[in-house]
């Protein structure tokens, strides 16, 4: 008798907990079946922004800052979830397969337009609907401060005299900065020695220690060395000069005909998301990115703010994708 009572109460408690945990799980399932009917009362619960890189890194910080500002506008909170791996492909793939109800958005990075060409993943910008472009950082050709060349022209001269010897560090094989260096090679008809590192920071460290001759990473990533006076930037690979280094000319100003290459970050949602919802998100994020608070933050960190709306962003991604399609196959990656 005693035993039965005990077992009974155990059973009861188990059932209670099942119900409780079911409630916890269900809370997140609401509304996902009603994607089409959300329309005007979107959003009515928390939105999740997937960040495909590690917490504490550059992309993560930009995302969190943006979200902080954007959620005031929306009246609903936006939660950041980091899903890292595969140079961003793991997180972005998960995002592309999420429910197209607008409650899962992603911060996408330039690698999205590169995966198919690198063979990393079948993911392409077409798996998403663009919401807004937030940031763009061009590649900046940076060399030690005491290098024997002061302009891009002199650098190229030197490279022509020493084919295959000038070492250029990048953030890894197939990284955007590697592609940028390859781009320079093509445009200037020179041969460089590409030295891959485990990220931009180690490459910059190597440059500061004079172990390599140059890097082609973003201005933000060489900023501390620049301020310390140990490096100098010869040119930026973009259409306009960069705010952080306004005295540095662009490649085209120096007479070199090369594509603009840089890393970028934007917001997207799964491709099946209804247009009305995309519009609401576009408005929110575009205005958040234009807020003074956000621009201040980006400037403090030397990051470039470039805002494009949904349609423009879509075109931008397609252009990038085509450009990478031309450069990458020539790079002879394994």
């Amino acid at each position: 008798m005693f035993n039965l009572k005990k077992k009974g109460s155990v059973l009861l408690m188990m059932m209670l907990m099942i119900v409780l945990s079911a409630c916890n799980g269900e809370g997140n399932e609401e509304g996902t079946a009603n994607g089409e009917n959300q329309g005007t009362d979107f959003p009515n619960k928390e939105i999740e922004l997937i960040v495909p890189t590690a917490a504490g890194g550059g992309t993560d910080m930009v995302a969190r800052q943006l979200v902080d500002i954007a959620q005031d506008d929306l009246d609903e909170s936006i939660g950041v979830m980091n899903v890292e791996g595969g140079s961003g492909s793991v997180g972005m793939t998960q995002a592309a397969n999420a429910n197209p109800d607008g409650y899962t958005a992603t911060m996408v990075i330039a690698e999205l337009a590169m995966y198919e060409h690198l063979g990393t993943s079948p993911l392409t910008p077409e798996d998403f609907k663009p919401v807004a472009l937030i940031n763009y950082d061009p590649a900046a050709l940076t060399v030690p401060a005491d290098a024997p060349y002061d302009t891009v022209g002199e650098f190229i001269e030197y490279a022509k005299e020493h084919p295959g010897e000038v070492s250029v560090g990048n953030a890894g094989p197939g990284s955007i900065w590697h592609v940028a260096a390859a781009n320079l090679e093509n445009a200037a008809d020179i041969e460089l020695n590409h030295v891959p590192h485990e990220g931009a920071a180690p490459a910059v460290t190597a440059l500061a220690g004079n172990h390599i001759d140059a890097v082609t990473v973003s201005p933000a990533e060489v900023r501390t060395q620049l301020d310390a006076g140990s490096v100098k930037v010869l040119a930026v690979m973009s259409d306009e000069r960069h705010d952080l280094i306004p005295d540095v000319p662009t490649l085209s100003e120096e007479g070199i005909d090369a594509e603009s290459i840089g890393t970028w970050r934007g917001i997207t949602v799964p491709s099946e998301t209804p247009d009305e919802i995309v519009e609401i998100l576009e408005e929110t994020f575009v205005s958040a990115a234009k807020e003074e608070e956000f621009i201040d933050f980006m400037n403090k960190n030397g990051l470039g703010v470039q805002v494009k709306g949904s349609e423009e962003f879509g075109e931008f991604m397609e252009e990038n994708r085509a450009m990478f399609g031309e450069i990458i196959p020539e790079m002879g990656l394994e």
Binding site: M14, M17, I18, S21, G25
Partner: peptide, 11 residues
């Protein structure tokens, strides 16, 4: 889900 599985596992 984690919570239910864990409860069962410990039991």
């Amino acid at each position: 889900g984690y919570y239910l599985s864990t409860i069962i596992m410990i039991f």
